[in-house]
């Protein structure tokens, strides 16, 4: 009995010590890890917009982050957007809430520093303070409106949807007419050699420049990828030829990956769903912003 107690005590103490070591390591490294993730995200953002280290984004390009929240108040639900205000406004952000029919519900200026808005917790507190008591808010997602000289040039949407095994996280870019500019897989756990091929150019580039009309009804076909199309997708031909072939297949559905039809289908449906919902939501938000003459930075 005594021995059992000693063993239990010693194991407990060693577990606590181990937890202490691991916890400290986590706290020390977490900041650097977050920073890395942010840098990587920025890189993905710019590469989706067609910029790289050789071809950096001009000064006139700005990213405006829009955060969507679900607001609950006494059995009623609203959709709230935290939008950046123009430079000369009194408060740097505005929280605009729409009811479920897409009509204006309320708006409040949010006075918080940009750094604070980047942190999920601080952002939530700042919004709650601005909209007053009695309301619950739940973060839904973050989207980015990209402008060049004040003109919108693209929307960047992050999203997560189920894959074959776990969730697939993507970042996609749409132009102002909701044409898909491209997407990047941020995180996935699909099978190597099968579903993991969603990261490959010959799959990803099939989505490139699909107009919104095509995107809305996009589906997957189980057919072999034509050889000429594959070459174009992988960039093995000269530019004029690639443009011609991409044009030829623009209206087509997505060719499923061999042995990974389900992954292909989920990615296609996921991107389609994100784009469709965003187009609808942004339409509602834009019309309210215009109606109520709420000034925003984008």
């Amino acid at each position: 009995m005594n021995q059992i107690l000693t063993i239990t005590f010693r194991l407990t103490v060693s577990c606590l010590l181990a937890a202490l070591v691991m916890g400290s390591a986590f706290i020390i490294t977490n900041k650097a890890k977050k920073h890395n993730e942010h840098v990587r995200e920025q890189k993905v953002v710019y590469s989706l917009l067609g910029y790289s280290d050789q071809n950096p984004a001009p000064e006139s390009v700005h990213l405006h982050e829009v955060y969507r929240y679900v607001v609950a108040e006494a059995g009623q639900q609203f959709i709230g957007y935290l939008v950046p205000a123009p430079h000369d406004a009194a408060a740097p952000f505005t929280f605009v809430a729409l009811d479920l029919d897409g009509k204006m519900a309320f708006q409040n200026p949010v006075n918080a520093a940009e750094e604070k808005i980047r942190e999920a917790e601080d952002r939530k507190l700042a919004i709650l303070e601005a909209i007053g008591p009695g309301k619950e808010i739940t973060f839904a997602e973050q989207t980015i409106v990209v402008t060049d000289n004040g003109q919108r040039i693209a929307y960047l949407l992050g999203g997560k949807f189920p894959g074959f095994k776990t969730f697939i996280a993507v970042m996609m870019a749409l132009d102002p007419k909701y044409t898909l500019l491209g997407f990047e897989v941020l995180e996935h756990e699909e099978d190597p050699g099968l579903g993991a091929e969603i990261e490959q150019d010959y799959f990803k580039n099939q989505f490139k420049d699909k107009p919104f009309e095509v995107l809305k009804g996009l589906d997957v076909v189980k057919a072999p990828l034509p050889a000429e199309y594959q070459k174009a997708l992988e960039g093995d031909l000269d530019e004029a030829e690639i443009a011609k072939l991409m044009e030829k297949y623009r209206g087509n559905d997505i060719y499923a990956l061999t042995g990974a039809t389900i992954s292909s289908k989920f990615v296609t449906d996921g991107l389609k769903g994100i784009a469709k919902k965003y187009a609808y939501r942004l339409g509602a938000l834009d019309s309210v912003l215009k109606e109520q003459q709420i000034a925003v930075s984008f």
């Binding site: 070591v21 691991m22 390591a25 986590f26 490294t29 977490n30 650097a32 890890k33 890395n36």
Partner: peptide
């Protein structure tokens, strides 16, 4: 775990 975290960061 510690080395995993350090490498990741």
């Amino acid at each position: 775990t510690v080395i995993d975290l350090v490498l990741a960061a």
